Amino acid sequence: MSTAGVLLAAGAGTRFTASQHKLLATIDGRSVVSRALQSLFEASLDAVAVVTGAVDLTGALADARHKIALISNERWASGIASSVRCAAGWAERQGHEAVVVGLADQPFVISAAWRAVAASAGPIAVATYDGRRGNPVRLAREVWPLLPHDGDEGARTVMRRFPEIVVPVACEGLPDDIDTVEDLSRWS
């Protein structure tokens, strides 16, 4: 079964009040988005893509540009659901049977988490950290039509409607996101 990994990086990051976008902020000399992308690469999935939108990430992704597909989400302002839809649509066009989606503002999700979620069975697999659901999330082709088209929830609405098809996957690593300047300062 072919499984792609997709990093969602389309949002505006409005809670991050610095002069630059949160994904371009650095931790130990590397941008938040490049750190997240490196973990996804190290998971060795069949293909890798990044959904972009509000900010130009070309410079931050330059080193990886020949290894990834960039998916432009023109509807990024409608919420994360549109980015998840973009990811599923791209995966379908590429012939993948599943897509594992994660967030570009979570630079401490490790490659082992991506691999574990990708290898899980079931229509939806969700990473758990100390019993709490997080990212990444694996979505099998059969659930793609159930995904919402817009709004600030991606697969969570499907997981609530159909809890019987959700497989929790215990993962190591940190699911912390960088949403504010204060979040970043804890790691810098």
Rank of each mutant, 00 (worst) to 15 (best):
P168S: 04
T157P: 14
R133F: 12
G89Y: 04
L146N: 01
A140D: 14
Q94W: 13
G79V: 03
V126L: 12
G134D: 02
A127H: 06
G131Y: 07
P168D: 10
D105A: 04
S120R: 08
A155V: 08
A140S: 15
G79N: 00
A127D: 05
G134K: 05
L146R: 14
M159C: 02
D152W: 10
R156D: 13
L147F: 09
W114S: 06
V100N: 08
Q106A: 11
A140C: 15
L146M: 14
A77C: 11
G79E: 03
V100I: 09
A104S: 09
W114E: 04
V143K: 01
I124H: 07
P175I: 03
E153I: 08
A121R: 15
V109W: 05
P168M: 12
A98F: 07
R132F: 15
S82Y: 09
N135Y: 15
V166L: 09
P123W: 04
G134L: 06
A119K: 08
G131M: 02
S111D: 08
D152A: 11
N135K: 13
L147C: 09
P136E: 04
T157N: 15
E153V: 12
F162M: 15
H149I: 05
R133L: 10
R160H: 12
G95A: 06
G134P: 04
V126I: 13
P163H: 05
P148Y: 00
E153W: 07
M159V: 02
L146H: 13
P175Q: 09
P163T: 05
E92V: 02
A81H: 00
G89W: 00
A87G: 07
R138S: 06
S78E: 15
A81M: 03
V169A: 10
T128I: 03
A112W: 05
R133A: 15
D130P: 04
D176K: 09
V166Y: 06
V109S: 08
A81K: 02
E153C: 07
A88F: 08
H149L: 14
S120H: 11
